[in-house]
Nucleic acid binder design. Structure first.
Lengths: 244, 244
DNA sequence: AGACCTGTTGCGGGAACCCGCAAGCGAATT
DNA sequence: AATTCGCTTGCGGGTTCCCGCAACAGGTCT
């Protein structure tokens, strides 16, 4: 069995390599890549059965690399290994994982035992496994009162990009008023108003983005990929009617 | 010589310990802390001459820890050691470093040689030393067209918190129109308009925050500490004139 | 001194935003 | 079939935001 490790921190990389060969005796070969691009390249080698991937990497991050890898080989088993329990990462992964594909998400702070267990479960058994820390993070009701559904999340991304209501409506195919309703529930769920019990009134749009960031509903990498998606959408929209 | 290492990643911690004792033969004792709070505590021990501090830590981050340490012992020499070259960190450090105090900022991606050199320069020689990568990051004119001055930065933080113009004016002691002028130049410097050459008009406030984040002018930790500062200011404002 | 530049402030108006109200519509329940 | 519930949509109005225009103060250059 041949496993690819994509990790840009050499210490974490060698620790991972250790744990991997300890946990999975069936591994015969380990290859490494130190950023997302290299990772995509290396994953094209024949015989790569499984991948362990860091999420935060300089050039191309883990989720983007995973997207291209999965688009080429949808049955690849990928284990994500990350410092942070941001909900944004989980959403990002959920958007790119093919159906019936095994993947996992463990934190770097997890114990060696849990890491080894997860590696076996995902890479060998083909399970789907997400560190319970990550789910717990999201559900703490004091900070994030309710989960955002997909449509709300989409609007949140557009808001975060700075689109105005009209544009969001066009992009998401809703009416203007519906967009505003989504925003309303976003403000509610993100706790925008709860901060102004102190009697101060604030800019809800910006505050929503602020709250989304500090609650880890989105993060800066999310913003960057969302910007790329927006650019694609924009060129797709710019064909006919070259007016003004 | 007694040195304190504050670092929550054990691998990086032991690497640092190695490099430290290699680079500084005069070190006789190394003590460790694994988060900001522990670090503050440990720094109170007698005889701690120098500190190496990670910036990203779970509970209390490196800058906050440095602030309390410096407030107790302003002559402490602190070397910051970080994964990211965010301008936000540099600004945060600049705000808390006492005058005539030695400090340094190196990236974790720096070579072992450069790390050792910086350690000597800062902890032994008492120099101020900032990794050139960090300055380079900020000055790339394609992304960030011009540096923000302190007043603009302050307004940017308030904007990021979701304050509206009136509040910012009150907090910073400017007129409403002046605040708006600051915002104008922020929009300019952050490149808010440059994105809308594609002909799309967007919400400048939110877009400014977006740009500030992706250009690393600010980051999420900045937002969190700014929120705390805001809360302090709010309670300080709430005493007399209980009007409406 | 006069010209000039930079930063601050007020005014005013068009655009965007926030949101209450109410009508419409499909799905689930009774 | 009637009712209820949730979601969508249009309308209207109060508020905030963005910013051009212009007056003014203080500092610099000639």
């Amino acid at each position: 069995m041949k496993v690819l490790i994509v990790e840009d921190d050499q210490f974490h990389g060698s620790y991972l390599q250790d744990a991997l060969s300890e946990a999975l005796p069936e591994v015969t070969e380990i290859i490494s890549a130190s950023d997302g691009l290299e990772g995509e390249e290396a994953a094209r080698q024949p015989g790569v059965d499984a991948i362990v991937m860091d999420l935060q990497m300089a050039d191309r991050n883990g989720i983007e690399a995973a997207r291209t890898i999965w688009s080429e080989r949808p049955d690849s088993r990928i284990m994500f290994w990350s410092n942070y329990a941001d909900e944004a990462y989980l959403r990002g992964i959920a958007k790119v994982v093919p159906p019936d594909t095994a993947y996992g998400y463990v934190l770097k702070t997890a114990s060696r035992e849990r890491l080894k267990l997860s590696l076996r479960a995902v890479l060998i058994e083909g399970q789907i496994m997400v560190d319970r820390e990550i789910h717990r993070q999201q559900n703490r009701g004091d900070i994030q009162r309710a989960r955002l559904d997909d449509s709300e999340y989409a609007v949140l991304m557009d808001l975060a990009l700075g689109l105005q209501d009209r544009l969001i409506a066009e992009r998401r195919g809703m009416s203007l008023r519906t967009v505003q309703n989504r925003l309303l529930s976003l403000y509610e769920k993100l706790g925008v108003d709860s901060d102004l019990d102190a009697g101060l009134t604030l800019n809800k749009r910006v505050r929503a983005l602020h709250r989304a960031l500090v609650t880890r509903a989105i993060n800066v990498e999310t913003l960057e990929t969302a910007q790329r998606d927006l650019n694609e959408w924009l060129v797709g929209r710019a064909s006919p009617g070259r007016r003004s």
